[in-house]
Amino acid sequence: MSRRFTPKVVTANHLLEGDAVWLTSDNAWTRTMSEAQFLDDEDLANERLAYALTQEADVVSPYLADAQLGENGPEPTHFRETFRTRGPSNYAHGKQVEVA
């Protein structure tokens, strides 16, 4: 039996703003995780990460984060990644107010 691959998205921090961004299927970086490319194939995930690693002019430290497919697109599965889609819990700062 082959090990089941946990689906991923490619995520990073934006070079200038420093905030969380996700890689879309058309090679753009979005601030809305649900617009990211959902990667349920391991080879594809690695290929997209390899591409992201060449995008130093836009982003810093890309990595693969676990994701699941929700109604509107990819969603986080771990609380750390959930916080990255929102911002801090002590103030209404960051994505929870900046991203429509």
């Binding site: 921090n13 703003e17 420093g18 130093e56 810093v60 801090p88 700062h93 960051g94 994505k95």
Partner: peptide, 24 residues
């Protein structure tokens, strides 16, 4: 683009600039 992140990271850390979850 003339410095890579690998080159820049130690320089920014020396100047107290860290990259956190939502921002620098």
């Amino acid at each position: 683009g003339s410095l890579t992140e690998d080159e820049f990271r130690p320089l920014r850390l020396m100047n107290g600039l860290y990259l956190q979850l939502h921002a620098y």
